[in-house]
Amino acid sequence: MKIYTGTGDRGKTSLFSGERIEKNDARIEAYGAVDELNALVGAVVASLPSVPEGGVVSMQLTRIQSDLFRVGAWLATSAGSPSMAYLQPMDQEDSRWLEEQVDQMQSQLPELTVFILPGGHSSAAWAHVARTVCRRAERRIVSLLDQNTLPDDGADSLLTYVNRLSDYLFVLARYCNYLAGMVDQVWQS
């Protein structure tokens, strides 16, 4: 599926809803960030510790990767366009699912009372990078919503989802260290 792929050599690209827009448009920044995030989630999957729990995490992350495609398609669609009919917007259920995974992982981790340095096992390090890009995607989406060019339908659920996803990635980073038998490094101020 080549929705937004590389046929715009001249600084323009196509939206899912067909319009040609400049590549430095705020939307492209937003779905570019989501795309980058998706690639980083792939890097987390590729570096997960080889323990049975890693398989479970891998399945979760695969689901998240396809959810991020949904997010990207939504960002690439103009309000009011018929393409919206083909979108599968995020709903509160998607965010709740993330929250459940966070709770599940957190129940196995020691409580966090200090700041930790992002890093540790390579999968944890990737998860931290993914988390920061996820925050950036969230900021970009907020700016887009301020410009009112996105479909209203599902905007709140989408923002909630992206927000919960960065929480998920933070806890996942700790969980990856835990699975790999590594201890989070504490920040010594």
Binding site: K2, G8, S17, R20
Partner: peptide, 16 residues
């Protein structure tokens, strides 16, 4: 697409 951008500005483009 190059031609459309140049000669048919404001058009929508869907591609496969």
């Amino acid at each position: 697409i190059r031609i459309i951008d140049q000669h048919f500005p404001g058009s929508r483009v869907f591609m496969e």
